[in-house]
């Protein structure tokens, strides 16, 4: 490959990469505010019912020097096999801390596993977050009448049945 060709290919590649990626870079320019602590609760492993589910609670404090309380609330029929139901301490800012729980699930009924997180700031103020993980959620069927794609001059329309 000649230097001239290499330069040309470099320019083409740059233009392509810029055009392709710039919307993604710019598109985050104005996102919504996020709370001072980010919380995610999710299954690490779904159980064979009856059986034991593994649940991960991920916390990311976004402000420094904050004390955090974590409290897990289980419905009566669920049992915490492993993991700390109540925890207090200081977590490092901008770092993800994962708390793991093993929970016995007795049947196919729908349950809500609630995680309550209280972030106490050094100023004395506090942020309370509640996250609920639905276990065996009931899936509601959406009444989609039909999904017209690319009808009428290229316009797609999704039709839901009115009530």
């Amino acid at each position: 490959m000649t230097i001239k060709k290499f330069k040309l290919y470099s320019i083409v590649l740059f233009v392509f990469m810029f055009l392709f990626f710039s919307p993604f870079i710019i598109s985050l320019a104005a996102s919504k505010p996020i709370p001072p602590i980010d919380v995610v609760i999710e299954f690490d492993k779904h159980p064979a019912i009856p059986g034991i589910a593994i649940v991960n609670l991920k916390l990311i404090p976004l402000i420094k020097h904050s004390n955090i309380d974590v409290h897990i609330e289980l419905p009566e029929k669920l049992r915490l096999i492993n993991g700390v139901g109540k925890w207090s301490g200081i977590l490092e800012v901008d770092k993800t801390e994962t708390f793991q729980y093993k929970i016995y699930i007795p049947d196919n009924k729908t349950y809500g596993l609630k995680a309550i997180i209280i972030l106490k700031m050094i100023t004395g103020e506090a942020v309370r977050r509640e996250e609920v993980l639905e276990i065996n959620p009931v899936v509601k069927k959406k009444e989609l009448k039909k999904n017209h794609t690319q009808e009428e001059k290229g316009r797609g329309v999704i039709e839901f049945k009115g009530e």
């Binding site: 985050l28 320019a29 104005a30 996102s31 001072p36 976004l62």
Partner: peptide, 22 residues
């Protein structure tokens, strides 16, 4: 709008252009 963008929380201190925009 001259915000440089990025994630932001309401208790944080950021570039004054982002703070204005949000």
């Amino acid at each position: 709008d001259d915000s440089p963008g990025g994630t932001h929380t309401i208790t944080g201190y950021y570039d004054i252009r982002l703070a204005w925009s949000e």
